[in-house]
């Protein structure tokens, strides 16, 4: 494992989870293999240049955002290794929602997190309907319960206080 500090890659909004990043790394490796194969064929046939395979939208966005040229052998090898390192070291925020998370909302959320918290934040998404609403967030060392269930539980005193006020009004 590389001990170097991971470069400050900018992840596209569509790259949300560690699985997405792993898929991206696998796709980069696949493209790299494809280019190595083409390079071997070119050496055999005497042709020059690569035929770029069809890239996924996630990889295309990643390359565009980070201004990377995937046809550059050296650069591709470097950022492939760096991307592996990032995959192992990127901070992961576990977020559990009460409803199924749609990609648009996840993209919006991860964009915010990467802007405000960490530029390479990845999400691990879970589903827990009993939360009713909000999210249950677990960072490496802390848990933040922003669910509606917790909000209601924390504000039970409001109902009691309102009832006491009402009863005090009735007694007076």
């Amino acid at each position: 494992m590389s001990q170097t500090t991971p470069p400050a890659f900018v992840f596209p909004p569509a790259l949300v989870t560690r699985a997405d990043l792993a898929r991206l790394v696998r796709e980069v490796e696949s493209v790299d293999n494809e280019f190595e194969a083409q390079k071997a064929r070119n050496q055999a046939t005497g042709k020059a240049g690569y035929r770029t395979p069809t890239l996924s939208r996630s990889l295309g966005d990643f390359l565009d955002l980070n201004k990377l040229d995937i046809t550059d052998d050296h650069g591709r090898m470097v950022f492939k290794e760096q991307l592996r390192a990032v995959k192992d070291k990127a901070p992961i925020v576990h977020m559990t929602f009460a409803v199924e998370a749609d990609p648009g909302s996840l993209a919006q959320l991860v964009t915010y997190l990467r802007k405000e918290i960490h530029p390479q934040t990845l999400l691990s998404v879970g589903l827990q309907p009993s939360l009713v609403g909000g999210a249950y967030i677990r960072t490496p060392n802390h848990v933040h319960d922003f669910s509606l269930r917790e909000l209601l539980s924390a504000n039970r005193g409001v109902i009691t206080a309102a009832l006491e006020d009402a009863m005090a009004g009735v007694v007076q």
Binding site: P91, V93, F97, A98, V99, E100, A101, D102, G104, S105, L106, Q108, L109, Y112, L113, E116, I117, H118, T121, P129, V132, G133, G134, A135, I137, T139, P140, N141, H142, H144, F146
Partner: peptide, 28 residues
């Protein structure tokens, strides 16, 4: 129950994260 979709909850979640941003950053 399931009346809220994630899109409608997103402002609340972001607001809560914003409120605890410093703790989350330090934890990261």
């Amino acid at each position: 129950g399931d009346q809220f979709d994630l899109k409608s909850q997103l402002p609340y979640i972001i607001k809560q994260v914003e409120a605890n941003k410093q703790n989350i950053i330090e934890d990261m």
